[in-house]
């Protein structure tokens, strides 16, 4: 994850109650989604950014995770996301992020 964005996630987690924060990912591939998820839960796995060695434990979901989908505005979903849903592998993405969440997240929805 971009180093500046790591810093902003880190700042947000300090400013707000981490228990209230939910990170939603829109990654294009499962491997990338795992890296993002791990970065916000367990620390930057590439050890290059501000989140290296900082396990925030934030709740993290892929946007295609059913739990998150259920909260989205159906009309907007249709307009904005349904196209990408056909191109991407939504289940694999949701599953990949769930794997990391189950391992490292301290909070959930």
């Amino acid at each position: 994850m971009d180093l500046q964005n790591q810093q902003r996630v880190k700042d947000a987690a300090e400013k707000y109650d981490p228990a209230d924060i939910v990170v939603v990912l829109g990654s294009s591939d499962a491997e990338g989604a795992e890296i993002y998820a791990e970065t916000v839960c367990n620390g930057d796995p590439t050890y290059a950014g501000p989140l290296a060695g900082v396990p925030l434990g934030l709740a993290v979901y892929d946007v295609f995770d059913q739990e998150i989908r259920d909260e989205a505005d159906p009309e907007e979903w249709e307009n904005q996301i349904s196209m990408m849903e056909m191109v991407l592998e939504p289940e694999a993405l949701a599953e990949a992020v769930k794997g990391i969440r189950d391992q490292y997240s301290k909070y959930t929805l």
Partner: peptide, 17 residues
């Protein structure tokens, strides 16, 4: 909740979320 949306250009962009 406080949302952090991390989109990707070739996945789902943040404004869509």
């Amino acid at each position: 909740k406080k949302l952090i949306l991390l989109g990707e250009r070739d996945g789902v962009p943040a404004p869509a979320m």
